[in-house]
Each structure stands twice: as C-alpha cells, then as structure tokens.
Amino acid sequence: MRSLPREFFRRDPTVVAPELIGALISSRAGGETVTARITETEAYRQDDPASHTYRGRTPRNEVMFGEPGHLYVYLSHGIHHCVNAVSHIDGQAGGVLIRAARVLDGEVIAARRRANARDADHLARGPGLLARALGLTMTQAGADLCDADSDVQLFSDGVRLQISAGPRVGVRLAPDVPWRFWASADRSVSTYRRSPRAEPVDGRAARSIDS
C-alpha cells in the first residue's frame, strides 16, 4: 500500500471525492487500529452554499483554508463527529466528507465502539457512525493525513470500485448538486435522504457551482 501524497489533495474536491472511493482510511485513535475501505464521499467547495467555507474563514473552519491533506472534524447537531479530508486548489478552500466505509481490519474494535450496529455493513454506514467506528473525535482535528506518524492516514492499495454519483444527503442549500459519490454495489453505503428544508440554489450560486 502507499499513502496518498499531498498533491492528491491539492485538487478540486469534486475531483478528489470520487477518487477516494475504494481508498483506505486507517485510524490509530486511542492506540487501537481500525482500517476501512471508503465507500461514500461528498465534495464541498468554497463557492458551494452548502459548504462550511461558503461564508468565509472562521475559527471553526480554519483548517479547510489551510494546507490540503489535513483532517477537518466537526460536531454535527452536537452529537456526531464528521471527518473530512481537506482538498482544494491554491487560493481556495474545501474538503471531502467521508460518509461511509467498510471495515476491513479491527472489526472487533469497531463493533465494540458501535455496539448497536446491526451487522458489519452498518459499522461505518454514515458519517457520524464512521467516525465512531474509527474512534475519531475533535482530538484528531487537523491531523496530517500525509504524515506517517499521524493517527489517521489514507492509503491506496490499487482497488477500483464502480462508482455512482448523485445529490448530497440532507443539505438545505444546493441540494441537487450531484457531488455525492458511492461504491455502486456496496451495502455499507448510507441511504439517501433529501432534507425536508431543501432549497433550490439561486442563479448566482448555480453558476458558481457549475463553473
């Protein structure tokens, strides 16, 4: 296996997101190693109304404006941690939300962390459950994914999966932009749910996103 280099992440998130399908994410959080194959991602660009970076730099999203290849972690609804690989071209900000994965190694550890999981397909099915299975919290925020000594790293073992694309899950703004990518036949992929508050983007935002 080879770790993904910095240049891999120094590209538009919409390019990086589908290429992360089939990659491996490995966590040594808490001194216990869990490795999983990524099966679902979503891209978020700076000019995207659904992105945390859309309204500019804040203490919360600072890492998304920084060096590509770091981990952006945030707490969703005060309950679930969500992890993102910072990815963008120079002068921009953005990232790729890692939504789901299939645990390959450390399944006993992941199952202990996810005691309510129905089966192996559900250990890391959804962004909050993925973070829990891998033991990732705000402690890993900002981790360098390209550093061999990091608690969290991304690797390629050459596996290629058939990929589908469609709208992102649960976003209120820009709900129909097809920047969600998933392994077409994998049961670890989460269920699509459109936000009940979804709003169509206005003309300005639509042009920006499609540029």
Rank of each mutant, 00 (worst) to 15 (best):
L104E: 15
S51H: 14
V73I: 15
A101L: 06
R99F: 08
D105C: 00
N84M: 06
R118V: 09
R60D: 03
H88L: 10
L123P: 02
L71I: 00
R99I: 13
A110Q: 04
V83E: 01
D121M: 02
D48E: 07
E67P: 07
A120M: 04
V63L: 07
H80E: 07
G66Y: 02
R125H: 00
G95T: 12
A120N: 06
L97G: 04
R45Q: 11
H52Y: 15
H122V: 06
G78T: 07
T58W: 03
D121V: 00
G126I: 08
G56F: 03
S51G: 14
H88M: 09
P127K: 06
L71T: 00
P59G: 06
E67V: 13
R60H: 09
R99K: 11
H81V: 01
P68V: 04
H122K: 11
V73S: 09
R102G: 06
V86E: 01
S87A: 15
A100Q: 11
Q92C: 15
V103N: 03
D119V: 12
A110T: 05
G69T: 05
V96L: 12
R55G: 08
G91C: 10
R118G: 01
E62I: 07
A124S: 07
I109Y: 00
L104I: 15
H70T: 14
H77R: 08
N61T: 08
V103G: 08
R112G: 01
